[in-house]
Computed example of a mutant assay.
Amino acid sequence: MTPRIWAVLPAAGRGTRFGGEVPKQYLEAAGKTLIAHALDALLSHPRVDGAMVALAADDLRWPGWTSRHGKPLLRCTGGGERADSVLAALRALPGDVDEDALVLVHDAARPNLRAADLNRLIDVASAHADGAILGAPVRDTLKRADADARIVATEPRSALWRAFTPQAFRRGALTSALERARAEGVLVTDEAMAMERTGAHPALVEGREDNLKVTTPADLALAEYLLARLTE
């Protein structure tokens, strides 16, 4: 039997850095909301069985989807921080998604995920006990600054990567890692950080650099341009 693979999308945030009244996952680009693009990229993949979305308790914008691409799309109530929402979603997954099942955690405002990247990630994470994440090596020169925004030093970049999503881990291991971080009062900024704190060494899978997360209005404009090119 082929192991089950589910996606988790933390979508309880308000997108305060973006500004405006509409949470950024509900902003539109190329005719669909960002979260719809993200879900379609995941659920259209033949190896992904379903998705769980963690929403704010007072979210009135959720369209009420229960399936996409013929696959189950479930919802749960998220928390105040990304890690809280991911943990809530992991706990809410169906009972037949066992502890060893691979879970793909993906940003709801990262709409431009390509199937080839997702396929490589699943292959590597399935073969790697500590899971894997999509990312890209840092290519720009890095400068360390002081409090007055003056350059202090040039930092070596040879071993540095930018972390993308999805990030893929076993359900049980990621749940335990997030629970441990919460108990120790550590705010993790992504799932790999939680896993690293347990001694795990997730694999890095190089993905396309246009798999961008929408954080600013300029990001939204670029995402719309990229998505429009996909449909040409």
Rank of each mutant, 00 (worst) to 15 (best):
A159G: 06
D59V: 04
L212D: 04
G78R: 05
K143P: 00
L87D: 03
L230H: 13
A181R: 08
D58M: 05
E179R: 04
A194Q: 03
R47N: 05
D40W: 05
V138N: 04
L90R: 05
A30S: 13
G70F: 01
T66S: 07
T165Q: 10
K32P: 01
T215S: 11
P111D: 05
A168F: 01
S85A: 13
D84K: 10
L113G: 12
T165N: 12
V105C: 09
G13L: 08
E206Q: 14
R150G: 07
A7V: 05
H106Y: 10
V105H: 00
A54I: 08
L121E: 03
D40G: 06
T66G: 00
R17S: 13
G20M: 09
L43V: 02
H128K: 08
A147V: 10
T165F: 06
A194F: 03
G207Q: 11
A127M: 11
R120Y: 02
A108G: 15
L55T: 04
N119F: 00
L121F: 08
A83Y: 07
A223V: 03
R61H: 12
L212G: 03
R208Q: 13
G135M: 09
H69M: 05
T175K: 12
P46C: 06
A41V: 02
G199E: 08
E232A: 14
A36M: 12
P137L: 04
E21T: 14
R75G: 03
V214M: 09
A147W: 00
D210G: 00
P10I: 07
G80A: 14
R229V: 14
A89D: 04
A177Q: 08
V8F: 10
L220M: 11
R182M: 07
G15D: 07
A228W: 01
R82S: 06
H45A: 09
R75W: 05
L9M: 15
R120I: 00
T189D: 10
D84W: 12
V205M: 05
P217V: 09
D96W: 02
A221Q: 14
V105I: 15
A159R: 15
L39N: 01
A218S: 12
V124L: 06
R170L: 04
R139Y: 09
Q25Y: 13
T215Q: 12
V48F: 02
P46T: 07
S158R: 14
V22Q: 12
L174H: 03
E206C: 11
L226D: 01
A129Q: 15
